[in-house]
C-alpha cells in the first residue's frame, strides 16, 4: 500500500475512534453513571444506599437553619433542592469551620455519609459559586446570584 493511502486510512480510523468515543460519552448515557454529587431528593430516594457510604451531597443552604458552635467546632444546617425546599430538606452536621463564602441561600457540596438517624454527617463542606460575576450593589440580590444553583 502506498504510504499516503495508509496514512489517510489511519487518519480515518483515528477520527472514527475519536468521534465514537465522544459520541458514547456525550449521548451514550455514560454520563448518568458519573455522579459528582447527589441532590437531597436523590439521597432521600436512595436512603438505604446512602447510609455508611461516602457520598457527596449538593444543594442550597436553607435560610434560618445555620448554627455554628465555636467551642465544639460543630456546623449544622439544612440543605434543599432549591432556595426554599419544603419536600426533601436534609439536615447536615459538619465538624469543620465553614468556608468564608458560606452563608444562607448559597450552593454547597458536602462530603460525608448518611447516619441512621437521617442526619448527613459531613467531613468536608465546599461552597459553590455561580458563573455570575457581579459588581457589588447597594442591596445584594442573593437570589439572583444563585440563579444557576437553583437550576440543579
Amino acid at each position: 500500500m502506498k504510504p499516503a493511502i495508509q496514512r489517510r486510512l489511519f487518519l480515518l480510523g483515528a477520527l472514527l475512534v475519536a468521534g465514537g468515543a465522544l459520541g458514547v460519552i456525550a449521548w451514550g448515557g455514560i454520563g448518568d453513571n458519573l455522579v459528582y454529587f447527589w441532590t437531597p431528593a436523590q439521597v432521600a430516594a436512595n436512603a438505604d444506599k446512602a447510609v455508611g457510604a461516602t457520598i457527596r451531597l449538593g444543594g442550597v443552604v436553607q435560610a434560618g437553619t445555620v448554627h455554628w458552635e465555636q467551642d465544639q467546632q460543630l456546623l449544622t444546617f439544612t440543605v434543599g433542592e432549591s432556595t426554599v425546599d419544603t419536600k426533601t430538606p436534609l439536615q447536615v452536621e459538619a465538624k469543620s469551620a465553614p468556608p468564608q463564602m458560606f452563608r444562607e441561600g448559597i450552593g454547597v457540596v458536602v462530603e460525608g455519609t448518611m447516619r441512621t438517624d437521617g442526619v448527613f454527617s459531613a467531613d468536608k463542606v465546599m461552597v459553590k459559586h455561580s458563573n455570575e460575576y457581579r459588581a457589588p450593589t447597594g442591596e445584594a440580590d442573593v437570589k439572583k446570584l444563585y440563579a444557576t444553583v437553583e437550576d440543579l
Binding site: L34, T39, G58, N131, Y133, T148, L152
Partner: peptide, 12 residues
C-alpha cells in the same frame, strides 16, 4: 453542563 458540578458553568 453534562454533570453535576462544583465548578461554575461557562461564563458568558
Amino acid at each position: 453542563k453534562w454533570w453535576n458540578s462544583l465548578h461554575q458553568p461557562v461564563s458568558n
